Simulated scan of single mutants.
Amino acid sequence: MNHSHQTEVESKDSSRLEYLTFTLGDEHYGLDIMKVREIRGYEPVTKIANAPPFIKGVLNLRGDIVPIVDLRIKFNVGDANYNEFTIVIMLHINDRIVGIVVDAVSDVINMESTDIKPPPEFGVAFDSEYLFGLAPVNDDMIILLNIEKLISSHELGLFDETTMASEG
């Protein structure tokens, strides 16, 4: 009997999105909070020979080999200053876990899908294929990342091949 009410609630909630926001330099970024597994401090990684420069290395996280991606290097923001305040966001994407190094985690924001603007075609320091959109929040603009595209990128495929070759 309650079925029609449930459908109404689902459709009303489907346009609300939650993003974890973080900073890289002076820029504010956001990613789908449903992809976030945990937030940790930076810890030493095992370097992998011939890995792309933005892959800092790997961590053994409870038996999973997790590549650690430095978004500052990936997005040409400048080198990260690794210290006790450096943050790694562990993401669960496409059946794998990947860590991304960010400067700081800011907030969790809720927004309507209609608030998200398409990314511009120019003027972005990194490849716009990794952008999902832009979201105005207060007096700021949050750059929303398409984290699936970023993590399934060609370079991470090369990284997998490198890791397999070094294991064999």
Score class of each variant (00 low, 15 high):
Met34Tyr: 11
Pro120Asn: 03
Tyr42Gln: 06
Ala51Met: 03
Pro119Leu: 04
Gly123Glu: 08
Tyr82Met: 11
Phe126Gln: 04
Asn83Pro: 04
Phe85Pro: 06
Leu71Ile: 11
Asp103Phe: 04
His92Lys: 12
Ile93Glu: 01
Ile109His: 06
Asn76Asp: 15
Gly78Gln: 09
Asp103Pro: 10
Val69Gln: 06
Arg37Cys: 05
Leu20Phe: 06
Arg37Trp: 12
Pro44Leu: 08
Asn76Glu: 10
Pro67Met: 01
Val69Asp: 07
Lys56His: 09
Val36Pro: 01
Ile33Glu: 02
Tyr82Asp: 10
Val77Trp: 02
Ile109Pro: 01
Ile116His: 05
Lys35Leu: 09
Ser106Arg: 13
Pro53Val: 11
Ser113Arg: 10
Phe22Gly: 03
Ile73His: 10
Ile89Asn: 09
Lys74Glu: 00
Asn50Asp: 13
Ile116Gln: 02
Leu31Lys: 00
Leu61Asn: 01
Val88Lys: 09
Pro44Ala: 14
Thr23Lys: 10
Gly25Tyr: 01
Val102Ser: 00
Gly57Lys: 08
Val58Ala: 06
Met111Phe: 14
Arg96Phe: 10
Asp70Cys: 10
Phe54Leu: 10
Ile65Glu: 03
Gly30Asn: 02
Thr86Asp: 09
Asn76Val: 05
Val69Met: 15
Val69Ser: 04
Lys117His: 14
Pro67Cys: 02
Tyr130Val: 03
Val124Glu: 12
Tyr82Leu: 15
Ile55Phe: 07
Glu112Phe: 05
Phe54Val: 01
Ile65Gly: 11
Leu20Ala: 06
Leu24Gln: 01
Arg62Asn: 11
Val36Phe: 11
Lys35Tyr: 14
Asn110Gly: 11
Val69Pro: 11
Val105Ala: 08
Glu43Trp: 03
Asp26Cys: 01
Ala51Glu: 00
Ile89Asp: 05
His28Ser: 13
Gly123Ala: 13
Asn60Arg: 07
Pro53Cys: 13
Thr46Ala: 13
Leu61Thr: 08
Asn83Cys: 01
Leu91His: 07
Val101Ala: 06
Tyr130Ser: 04
Leu31Asn: 01
Arg37Phe: 12
Lys35Pro: 01
Met90Arg: 00
Ile97Cys: 06
Ile33Lys: 09
Asp64Val: 10
Met34Ala: 15
Arg72Gln: 10
Val36Trp: 08
Ile87Leu: 08
Lys56Val: 11
Ile39Phe: 02
Ala49Trp: 09
Tyr42Cys: 12
Ile116Tyr: 13
Ala104Tyr: 05
Ile68Ser: 05
His92Thr: 13
Pro67Ile: 00
Phe54Arg: 12
Tyr82Ser: 01
Gly41Phe: 10
Val77His: 11
Leu91Ile: 07
Val98Tyr: 01
Ile89Glu: 00
Asn50Lys: 15
Leu20Arg: 09
Asn94Arg: 14
Tyr29Ser: 00
Ile100Asn: 08
Gly41Arg: 04
Gly30Leu: 00
Leu91Phe: 03
Val88Ser: 08
Asp103Glu: 03
Phe122Ala: 14
Ala104Glu: 07
Lys47Gln: 05
Asp95Arg: 13
Phe75Asp: 00
Phe122Asn: 05
Ser128Gln: 12
Asn50Pro: 03
Val102Pro: 02
Tyr130Thr: 08
Leu31Arg: 06
Pro120Met: 03
Ala104Met: 05
Thr114Gln: 14
Asp115His: 15
Val101Pro: 09
Glu129Pro: 08
Glu129Ala: 12
Asp127Ser: 04
Ala125Ile: 13
Asp103Tyr: 13
